[in-house]
């Protein structure tokens, strides 16, 4: 065992975390925003909105993420005629994919808000987008928080899949060091440790946040 290998390459490997964090943050916000629209679409009374949204959600939930990443990397340049670059294509793949999962979380969250709240909003003259924005979504997001936290942790771990198209995020860098130093056990133990610490930290922060919301909203 040579644990020194970690210290020798620490800077290089941890540097990949910045990219991992960036990717996770964009996937989370972009996926959530797009997922809110899709989730509301899944509840729409108009078949022109309901069916496309439903098809989208079912389609991407049936696909492995790794395939979606490949898809945007190889196929989109063929369609658009110019390459997207590794990072951009990964970001698009993640937002597209995660939105399908967020959509179902949002749908459940919105359905958990009593119907009378919608009626109350409308009866004051508010329009659909105002009712959703000011009345329904703030309440829905609150009940969605545990599910959102879980999904955020999943996204964070999923970012490692971007290594298949050569994006040099954290796990890819660990992998690169391993090919040079041939210290698999030490290096992958280190990687596991880093994921463990960061995900635990993330859940703790989210848990705190949830509890504070409960206190603020009797």
């Amino acid at each position: 065992m040579d644990w020194q290998v970690i210290l020798r390459n620490l800077e290089f490997m941890v540097g990949g975390l910045a990219l991992t964090a960036q990717l996770a943050a964009i996937a989370l916000t972009g996926g959530l925003l797009w997922g809110i629209l899709l989730g509301l679409g899944r509840l729409s009374r108009s078949p022109w909105i309901y069916y496309p949204a439903t098809l989208y959600v079912h389609f991407f939930r049936s696909q492995p993420l790794i395939l979606v990443i490949f898809w945007f990397y190889f196929l989109v340049p063929v369609i658009t005629g110019k390459p997207l670059g590794t990072f951009v294509s990964t970001v698009i793949a993640f937002v597209t994919f995660e939105a399908a999962y967020f959509a179902e979380i949002v749908r459940a969250g919105v359905q958990s808000v009593p119907k009378g709240q919608v009626a109350a909003g409308y009866s004051c003259g508010l329009r659909y987008h105002q009712v959703q924005l000011y009345v329904i979504l703030p309440q829905a997001l609150r009940s969605m928080l545990p599910a959102l936290t879980t999904q955020a942790v999943v996204i964070f771990q999923d970012t490692s899949l971007a290594y298949v198209i050569g994006l040099r995020e954290f796990l890819r860098r660990v992998n690169l060091v391993d090919t040079r130093e041939a210290r698999s056990i030490e290096l992958y133990c280190f990687a596991a440790f880093v994921y463990l610490v960061l995900c635990l930290l993330g859940s703790r922060v989210a848990h705190r946040f949830e509890r504070r919301r409960e206190v603020a909203l009797p």
């Binding site: 009378g116 009626a119 109350a120 909003g121 004051c124 003259g125 000011y134």
Partner: peptide, 14 residues
């Protein structure tokens, strides 16, 4: 709707 107020059985305050 903006000109017709409505009060509900279960209040429905936000």
């Amino acid at each position: 709707r903006a000109r017709i107020g409505m009060v509900f059985q279960h209040f429905e305050l936000y």
